[in-house]
Design a protein around this nucleic acid. Structure first.
Lengths: 324, 324
DNA sequence: CTGATTTGATTAATCGTTTAATTAATTGTT
DNA sequence: AACAATTAATTAAACGATTAATCAAATCAG
């Protein structure tokens, strides 16, 4: 590995001058800067992160803690985050919090031990972790007071709900996965606020799909779920019950996961602007590291309704089924 | 942050002794080691990675390069890898190669620039990257001569194929996603070898699902795909064509992704032992870093057949459809 | 032409560890 | 009892960058 000393020896100046020339600090003549730069390029010089970190106390590495790396959203967040981080000259160290709040704390501790400059955390459901020692960006939902950036889950819920109302549904049921999740509660809050009288029931958890089917038999014409996976589960239950989507009942998911467009029928869902969330997370993070406060800190990012074929105008077949 | 000097001053010995006591190198009396250890614990001492890296040239960080972090397998690999790495005292820095071989090279270069001790790479389809400077573990498939560890994709293909043969199918078609992928080619090789005469056609790519439907109309009773997503796509096309699974036709996927068990019918598929692959990758990596060669380097990990409801005994309805 | 200012470079200390070389004290051998 | 071998600790030199302090030369004002 080529270091400052080598370049300095080559050109015949001190290492300090080379350092100054390369980082743009201190006073160095234009001409010398140019010569040093080209020589550094020729030799393929890469500053030693270790040395720099030792001296400056900054590693240029961010930690990413996810509640469960198996979370279907993780890939996209990780991808966008790694791209955004790269643009900011930062690296991303991952840590899994394996489902439990204690593991989450442990994961944060490990990252801290590796000297990360900041931590981006998607918190465990119902927890509000605080690393303390370094700046933190929390990606959760508006209801979390510590939230730094997130999709506007409430708004997203409102979006699907309006769509469903627009196409004439008057008897709607909602299905959530886990009431402990603030994200899901926000999504449902958005739905219920818009739905008003059209909302006939909210179901939760594993028993949900069956209860939803029952609700459909007694008149519901639309099912709003808080995740695509839940929607797929309902879709399967509907097939068993010989109920068609969207003819008998409209169905929606959340998150626009990989399989949503290839389901039959293609699933109407709500997508997060993961790109924007990731780049804001990085921006907020870097601002915090500099000791500043990002103007968009705490704000949410609008969600986008993706209308496909699983929702359609509330029709007669369902009504008929109901009335008989 | 508390450092060696502080502990040394506290106890009244030199920093070298403290270092030796804590790392177990050099000669230090049992009694002193104990005293130093407890004092270090009391103060919550964490060695500075930067300083250690600077001196030893090792960062304790591994780079992970994935062809596309959006790859549905990524979360599980990342999770297992991060756990296995943690047990080995290593951290994992991620880099996305965004689909292109050039970006892959670039991602590797970036990781190298950050001083990683080794790189674990899941190569871009059809490429064989070589970072050169640091030890590398390649997770691909047996057909890749550089492969360090991977699922036995060929064996997995053979597994589903045998299952299909066992339950009496005699007219089988295969659907692959992209012939450039060595993984997919291996899976299909395993299938074809076992299928023999029972194999009537192999289709590839986006036009595949329709061709498969056509094949079913002309007698095929089973469809073997190389991924769950592909299977879901076929499933949707079958619904459109009013063909039932598994009554008319049996269907299988690959990878046992999140949605496989909740499809209707639940999808028969082949699962990778991601746990084992990840921990072997780390073991092979650490062995390489030490300059040794791991005995299992280059070996594959068996896959596991997951039989659900999308496959059943070849029956008459399909035959009838065929003969008419 | 002298003293003050600006410019361009160097010196040297420092960050926290590791580790080879050295010294001092203890134990063992004949 | 004298000398070698072992044990337990210290010293001091790195590792590669950053940065405050310093210095010499050049520029400028009056």
């Amino acid at each position: 590995m080529v270091n400052l000393k080598e370049i300095a020896g080559d050109i015949g100046v001190s290492v300090a001058t080379v350092s100054n020339a390369l980082t743009g600090k201190g006073r160095v003549s234009q001409e010398l800067v140019a010569r040093i730069r080209t020589r550094a390029d020729e030799l393929g010089y890469r500053p030693s992160n270790a040395a720099r970190a030792l001296k400056t106390g900054q590693t240029g590495i961010l930690g990413l803690v996810m509640p469960d790396l198996t979370n279907p959203l993780f890939p996209r967040i990780a991808q966008m985050l790694s791209i955004a981080a790269e643009n900011a000259g930062l690296g991303i160290l991952i840590a899994d919090s394996r489902g439990s709040p204690e593991e989450q704390r442990e994961a944060i501790r490990r990252l801290l031990g590796r000297g990360v400059d900041g931590i981006i955390v998607v918190p465990q459901k119902g927890t509000t972790p605080d690393p303390g020692q370094v700046p933190t960006a929390v990606i959760n939902t508006a209801a979390d007071p510590k939230n730094s950036v997130s999709a506007d889950h409430t708004g997203g819920g409102a979006l699907v709900a309006s769509h469903i109302l627009d196409i004439g549904h008057k008897d709607v049921v909602i299905l959530g996965g886990d009431p402990v999740s603030e994200v899901q509660r926000d999504r449902i809050r958005g739905m219920t606020e818009v739905l008003g009288d059209a909302l006939s029931a909210v179901f939760w958890g594993d028993a949900g799909p069956e209860q939803v089917i029952a609700a459909v038999s007694s008149g519901a014409t639309a099912i709003l779920t808080t995740s695509d996976l839940l929607a797929l589960r309902v879709r399967s239950a509907l097939i068993e019950a010989d109920l068609s989507v969207p003819d008998h009942v409209s169905l929606t998911g959340f998150d626009d996961m990989s399989f949503a467009p290839v389901m039959s029928p293609a699933l109407t869902t709500v997508a997060q602007d993961v790109d924007e969330i990731a780049s804001r997370a990085i921006d907020i993070m870097t601002a915090k590291i500099r000791g500043e406060r990002h103007p968009l800190d705490g704000q949410t990012v609008p969600m986008r309704l993706v209308i496909r074929n699983s929702t359609s105008i509330a029709n007669q077949s369902a009504k008929r089924r109901h009335s008989k």
